Each structure stands twice: as C-alpha cells, then as structure tokens.
Amino acid sequence: MLLVEDSLTDAAIAHGMLPDDRFEVEIATSLSEAMDLLEWSLDFDVGMVDLHLPDARALDAPRRLLAHPNVPPLVVVSGSIDDRLVRESLRLGVDDVLDKVHVTTPQVLARVLSHAVERAAFRTALEAQNRAILGGNTQLRKMVEQIAHDLRNPMVAMRGYAKALDRDEIDEEVRQRLRHELAAVADRSLLALDAMLVDIADTSGRSRINVTEMVAWAHDMLHEDFVESGASIMLEDLPDVWGQPASLRQVVLNVLHNAIRHCTPGTQPRIRVRAELVPDGERIVFSDNGPGVPRAQLETIFGLGERPPAMPGHAALGLASVRGVMTRHNGTVIARNNDRGGLDIVLTFPRRRPGEGDARA
C-alpha cells in the first residue's frame, strides 16, 4: 500500500490501524516522493492520499497521481470533506473519498481499502471484457464477410451448372459430369454452412469424447470425398478429450476435408491421426502428404479471408473456425510441416478440470 501523508503522526496512526498480515505500507510525505515511489515500483495494490501536502493542494495530488501509469486504486482522505469535493474526486477517477473523522476503527479503514481494490479488479475485468467484445465484433464482421465470399462463389458456380444443364446440345456424358459437379459444389457449401452454424451456436455441454469415434464419424460424412480422391486414413491409439461434441466433430471434419482437398495433384491423400505426449493435456496430430505450406505462412492459414499462395483453394472459413473452437476450449491449434513434405494440424487440449463429470460422448 502507498500512503501519502505529510503528517508523520497521522501516517503512524493509519499504519498502526492496518493489520500487518494484509497490508505492507510504504509512506510518502510529499507528492514528489509518492511519484518517485510509483516510478520505481509496480507492486502497489492500493493507495491512500491526503489532500493537504507540502507540494500540492486540494485535488492536485490525486490528479497527478492518477496520471501516472503505475498508480494503484486510490482513496482520498481529508479532514474536511464536502459534496463538491466528493463529486470532483470521483470524477477524476479515485475509488473512494474518506473523511478522517469517520476512520474510527481498523475495520473501517481496512474495509474501505479492500473495497477499492475489489472495485479496481472489477473495473479491470470489465474493461477486458469490453475489449473482448469489441474484438469479437470485429472477428464476427470478418467472418460474415468471409461467409458471404465463400458461399457466394459456389452459388454462382451452381447457377452456371444449372444453366448449362438446360442446353439441349450437351451430350449425356457431359450432362452427367455437370450433375456430379453441381452435387459436389452443393455438398461443399453445406459443409461450410454447417461449420459456421456449429461454430456460432453450439450450446452442447462438455463431456468426455472418444476421438477415434469422432474421426470415424467425420470419415463417414466425407465418404464420397474419400472415394473420389482415393484418400486413406490411418488411426493410431488416440486419447479421449474433453469438450463440446458438436463443435469438435466439426473441427475434425474441417481438418480432414482440408487434408483431402490440398493433396499434391496426382497423389492420393494419405492421412495419419496420432497422439503426442504433452505434460498438461492431450495432443492430436493430423498429418497429410500434401504440399505443405511455406514456414512464414503457417499461421496465416488460420486467418479469416487469408489464402496463402501454397493453398490457392484453401477454405479459409474452415480453419478459422477450427482456431475459434479450440480457443473456446482453452486449447490451441497450430500448423507445421512434417518430414513427408506434408502438413500437420496439431490440436492440443487441456486436461479435464477438477469437478467435471464423466459423461461420455
């Protein structure tokens, strides 16, 4: 605690009223001394400042202290308090105003200082929450823009296929190929739409999830893609993880879908899913035999609207959605190139928190 009081008698009285096990007090007898202490210390949890100092008068002391970046929550004390002084002090940003005549017990003083600390902590949390909301709004706007882009393009393609199918001169072989392409574009659009809806609106509770079963589900959902591309998948022993089943199924679906789409042309996709040991969680690695991504662009593939040159057909919404889901699970997702020349998508989950149930999904 920083105590700014020019009267050593009053400072000693205030110091003596505070319990030693809760408050470690540094005393400054002038504003300049208090400013020096702030300059050299970042550890003050609360401050108490008298309005009558040898180098400051009235509200000049709290005004200058509050302008310092290291200032803690501040309580103003004075022997003469009126409503105007209280209003002006609070408008400056002090946490409380205390009349010396009302400080009759150690409990009163300790309570005022503790409440100042608690209000400051609440204010800091509220500011962080507001920043998160603003950041979320920015991310949501980018997501909406990306959704509009990623869904509009296939819709334009489907309209072109539909118009082509109306032409009488097209032979049956071309017509069948157009129908197949139309269905494939529609399926990809539905996958992107499903990813968006799950990412935004997943309200399922968290439970223990069998990753092997989750990969099998995604394989079934992508059955036509696996057959058409000749892709194969190899599963090693995988641990269970904790999370929201619907969101994490979509994560696995997106990762597998990207591995199939971005395989080296003329090569059948080979996907390996394995676990890696980490001390404080569970790590699942999806390895493919695709072309990989330049090192400088590995982080870029998780950004909304970003398509590295190495992945010209990359579904930006898909991997951005994976990053969003993993962040909400207090986990991480990174990309790295593997020794086969392909890409690893690495999902790391924290271990189950104490008190979480044993429901299984």
Rank of each mutant, 00 (worst) to 15 (best):
55 D>I: 03
349 F>P: 08
50 D>H: 04
157 A>Y: 06
302 F>D: 09
19 P>M: 02
226 F>Y: 15
313 G>K: 12
97 V>D: 11
354 P>E: 13
5 E>K: 03
361 A>Q: 01
4 V>S: 09
329 H>M: 13
99 D>H: 09
104 T>R: 14
272 R>A: 08
299 E>C: 01
75 V>L: 10
339 D>A: 13
233 I>D: 04
65 L>A: 08
283 R>N: 01
135 G>F: 03
124 T>R: 15
97 V>P: 05
341 G>C: 01
121 A>R: 15
295 R>A: 06
125 A>M: 03
70 N>T: 02
123 R>Y: 08
359 A>D: 15
77 V>S: 12
245 P>I: 11
327 T>M: 14
191 L>C: 04
168 D>H: 08
197 L>V: 06
209 I>S: 09
301 I>H: 08
197 L>H: 13
15 H>A: 07
66 L>W: 05
128 A>E: 13
140 L>V: 03
28 A>Y: 02
278 V>Q: 07
331 G>R: 12
299 E>G: 15
134 L>E: 13
335 A>L: 12
18 L>T: 10
201 A>E: 06
231 A>F: 05
160 G>C: 08
192 A>C: 04
115 H>Q: 14
84 R>Q: 13
10 D>T: 05
188 R>P: 02
98 L>W: 02
182 L>P: 00
311 M>T: 15
330 N>H: 14
176 Q>W: 04
126 L>K: 07
